[in-house]
């Protein structure tokens, strides 16, 4: 929130951008490769709490292609197709036992983010974005640690049975020379990943695109 406040308060003027008429040149100017880290968790009560980087969160990577479209001076729309691992590293327990559980949910995710840019700062253009995503799950790996050893957990994997994830994204970032950017994004799932538990994906990603 602090960062969002900073960005919005620093948005002042915008410069227009012109697109090439040729498709190749268009792609060259607007298509980028994006890679980064992700921190994921499950929200258990539908809240918007963000995953916290650290030993108790699931840390993974993501990568994909980014296309910037409909570029205007202060607005544009970003479309992304990426591979991303979500899920959670959690500890369940009571006063007698603590059980660690790790569930990695692998998705192919399509995101669409309208962006608002601040373009009067020379080579860098900070932006904020608000959009949505649709993710199709392509894999799951579950394990738990009921004792001293980690074990595969087919039962938990079976209970996380929803194969798609739809959610919203909130993003802040900065373009460098129009195409490359660095970005911090929050993805919040709107539907549960299990038909038996109300648990939803929450992912914080830090990416760079070139």
């Amino acid at each position: 929130m602090l960062l969002l406040f900073y960005l919005s308060s620093s948005a002042q003027t915008f410069v227009s951008d012109s697109s090439s008429s040729k498709a190749g040149k268009y792609l060259k100017e607007n298509l980028a490769f994006k890679v980064g880290g992700a921190v994921s968790s499950f929200a258990h009560n539908g809240g918007i709490e963000a995953p916290v980087p650290g030993s108790k969160s699931l840390i993974s990577w993501h990568a994909g292609l980014v296309m910037d479209m409909f570029r205007k001076k202060h607005y544009q729309t970003r479309v992304e197709l990426s591979y991303i691992t979500k899920g959670a590293r959690e500890t369940f327990g009571n006063d007698r036992i603590e059980i660690e559980s790790v569930n990695k949910l692998q998705y192919i995710q399509l995101s669409i983010l309208p962006l608002i840019l601040k373009t009067n700062l020379g080579k860098v253009s900070p932006y904020i974005g608000l959009g949505g995503y649709y993710a199709q799950r392509v894999g799951i790996k579950s394990k738990w640690k009921p004792g001293a050893e980690w074990e595969d957990d087919a039962i938990a994997a079976g209970n996380l049975d929803k194969k798609n994830d739809v959610g919203y994204s909130v993003s802040v970032g900065v373009y460098v020379r129009k195409k490359s950017f660095a970005e911090l994004r929050y993805d919040g799932g709107l539907n549960a990943v299990s038909s038996t538990s109300n648990i939803k994906n929450r992912t914080l990603t830090l990416s760079i695109a070139l």
Binding site: K56, F92, S101, I155
Partner: peptide, 11 residues
Amino acid sequence: NNLLPVDDYYR
């Protein structure tokens, strides 16, 4: 250390 109640474990 955010300990979740074991009864909430989706397992």
